[in-house]
Computed example of a mutant assay.
Amino acid sequence: MPDYADLGLQLAWPLAMALAWMAGELIYRWTALPRIAVYGLAGFCFGNLAAGYLPPSESKNFMLLASLGFGLILFELGYRINLRWLRSNPWIVVTSLLEAAGTFAAVYAVAHFFGMERLPAALTASLAMSSSPAGLLRVLNEQGAAGQVTERAMHLTALNCVMAVFTFSVVVGIGLFQTSGDLAHAAGSSLLVLGASAGLGALFGTLVPLWLRLIDAAEGATLAFALAVVLLVAVTHVLQFSPVLAALTFGLVARHRRTALSPAQRNFGVLGDLLAVLMFFFVATRVEMEHVTGGIALGLLLVLVRAVVKIGVCTALARVSGISARKGALSGMALTPMAVFAILLMEQTHWMGVDLLDSLAPLAAAMLLLDIAGPVLTQRAVVWANETRLAKEV
């Protein structure tokens, strides 16, 4: 006789994700709310209702698949970054530097003022600097968005990711130094990982377009890049590098090697859609109810502080960077998503022996709020900027 309890556990993940996808489709059609917000809410409910019943191995397997989905999105973001635009309009870089630095300072000050220790406050602030490429790109592609706010949000997000990864690695290195007492080793290890990750991504970004030109397979570029991203993410996991920097650099270098992706293949087709459901569902299961309830007040305050700084800086520098103050504010509003980037980055520190999800309750609360509200605010930003597919048709 089959063990029905064991069978139920084996079917729990795929069944829950199928239901999350169905709920996302229905709610999107009824309310136009972003699908990924529904996936995140479903994942949070599933993760807390099924806590203690699911085998740990399942979580590890889904973590790798979520990282693969995130790698595809990071590649696409890097592929859509135009370095020539940044050189011709350096105010975009200045805006990113100021809003990221301002976010770090403000979030750190507020977190430390309300009782967080210096190291957890710095880790929270470094993650708050970032904007999640996953939340941003999925909403932009879902809406068919294009325009000044869309392009600026993508470039600011890419810059934010790089600065957040660097700052986060430095702060983690300081934490390891406090444990080991070896500052040179801790700092050197962090910087070496970042440099090696970027170098590996650049290598893939050079070799894959070279291979495509060699075999004259421009029409198969999407499949080649998808397989390369899967390999790159797997290699970075094995070598304990940063898949974030590697995939982002891969896309950036590949774009400037002049290999074109068909616009119809944004999101990497069905493969990207499938991994997106899994990714947004899985990362939300990592946020535990007790962490949310324990840090909800401070988490909400940190979300508000982060939003005020990002929107404020983008608005203040809008005119000198070539857009109206209104579009500057909408660009800052589009940067709201953070959850997927932050959770996957924290998960990647487990090999260092640093378990951040259990120690940063206010951040867990903030991530849950932004996992659900972030995509909605990004959607509203491009809709109000009249940059969606529907707005163009009208």
Results as ranks from 00 to 15, higher is better:
Pro56Ser: 09
Leu363Ser: 10
His350Lys: 12
Ala226Phe: 07
Asn160Lys: 00
Val303Asn: 02
Thr249Met: 13
Met333Trp: 04
Ala184Trp: 04
Pro209Phe: 07
Gly78Thr: 10
Leu41Thr: 10
Lys310Gln: 14
Leu275Arg: 03
Leu274Ser: 12
Pro90Leu: 01
Tyr28Asp: 11
Gln143Trp: 09
Ala202Met: 12
Leu275Trp: 05
Val238Pro: 13
Thr31Asn: 09
Gly374Asn: 06
Ala385Lys: 02
Val244Thr: 14
Met163His: 09
Tyr39His: 11
Phe280Tyr: 12
Ala325Pro: 00
Ala122Gln: 08
Val287Cys: 01
Thr378Glu: 06
Leu136Glu: 05
Val238Thr: 15
Cys161Ala: 11
Ala297Pro: 08
Glu393Phe: 09
Lys60Ile: 11
Ser321Asn: 05
Leu212Glu: 03
Ala247Cys: 15
Leu156Lys: 00
Ser59Cys: 08
Leu223Pro: 05
Gly199Tyr: 03
Cys161Val: 15
Leu363Phe: 09
Val303Gly: 02
Arg258Gln: 14
Leu136Thr: 10
Leu212Pro: 00
Ser126Thr: 15
Val253His: 00
Ser130Asp: 03
Leu252Pro: 08
Leu72Gly: 07
Leu54Asp: 09
Glu393Met: 13
Leu231Trp: 05
Met163Leu: 15
Leu77Gln: 07
Pro263Gln: 08
Asn141Trp: 15
Ile311Leu: 09
Val382Arg: 09
Leu203Thr: 10
Glu58His: 14
Pro90Trp: 03
Glu387Pro: 06
Gly332Trp: 02
Gln379Gly: 13
Asp371Gln: 14
Ala364Phe: 11
Gln143Ala: 15
Phe168Asp: 11
Val94Ala: 13
Leu123Met: 12
Leu159Asp: 04
Ala364Pro: 04
Met116Cys: 01
Leu223His: 12
Phe46Trp: 13
Tyr4Pro: 10
Ala134Trp: 04
Leu19Gly: 03
Ala106Asp: 04
Pro263Arg: 06
Gly272Val: 08
Ala364Lys: 06
Ala365Lys: 02
Ile296Phe: 13
Leu26Trp: 13
Val354Trp: 05
Asp371Ile: 11
Ala100Met: 12
Glu99Ser: 04
Tyr28Trp: 13
Ala121Ile: 06
Phe177Cys: 06
Phe44Thr: 09
Val308Thr: 13
Ala12Phe: 08
Pro90Ala: 00
Gly78Pro: 07
Pro263Phe: 13
Ile311Asn: 05
Val38Trp: 05
Val270Ser: 10
Phe70Cys: 08
Ala37Pro: 07
Val235Trp: 10
Leu302Gln: 01
Val93Gln: 01
Asn141Pro: 02
Pro56Asp: 11
Leu278Asp: 02
Gly294Tyr: 05
Thr259Leu: 14
Met352Gln: 12
Arg257His: 10
Leu363Met: 14
Glu76Asp: 13
Pro133Cys: 05
Val107Thr: 06
Ala260Asp: 12
Leu83Thr: 11
Pro14Ile: 02
Val287Trp: 02
Leu248Asp: 05
Arg319Gly: 02
Ser130Trp: 00
Leu227Phe: 11
Ala100Gly: 00
Lys327Ile: 05
Leu33Gly: 02
Phe281Ala: 04
Leu360Glu: 04
Asp358Lys: 11
Ala105Gln: 02
Ala264Tyr: 00
Gln240His: 13
Ile311Met: 13
